[in-house]
Amino acid sequence: MDISGEQQIDAPRERVWEALNDPEILRQCITGCESLEKISDDEMKAEVLAKFGPVKAKFKAKISIEDQIPPASCRLVGEGQGGVAGFAKGAAVITLHESDGGTRLEYKADMQVGGKIAQIGSRLVSGTTNKIVGEFFEKFPTLL
């Protein structure tokens, strides 16, 4: 499943880049995120309670940040284990462009689910994911 889009943010590129690397801001922007910590410069771990249709599970996720070109772009690769609920994994390329005095954030992600989420909830995965992404960008600018 491919998810892509862009978002205009009323803040300079450096500020956006900084915020994207701030675990506390990320935690607040991700619906259901119970914890998020940075283990190193290019690794984070998180616990997210997510619900795909009837399947609700706490996902323990590891995210690595690759190809970092501050403050222009990076690639996020993650995998979340939801126990018997299954797993989700994916990769996203995030690019920040200077635009209209602010920043245009472009994202292009590829996501895959497996196990029970795929079996029961796959019809709902793209809807749910789009909702989580939408909520992220609703909240994100307010915390800058």
């Binding site: 497996g114 795929a118 079996q119 796959s122």
Partner: peptide, 15 residues
């Protein structure tokens, strides 16, 4: 089945 991942995506009475 999802042809890439091999996940069964019609795996309940809802699907």
């Amino acid at each position: 089945y999802d042809t890439d991942s091999g996940q069964l995506i019609s795996g309940s009475y809802m699907d």
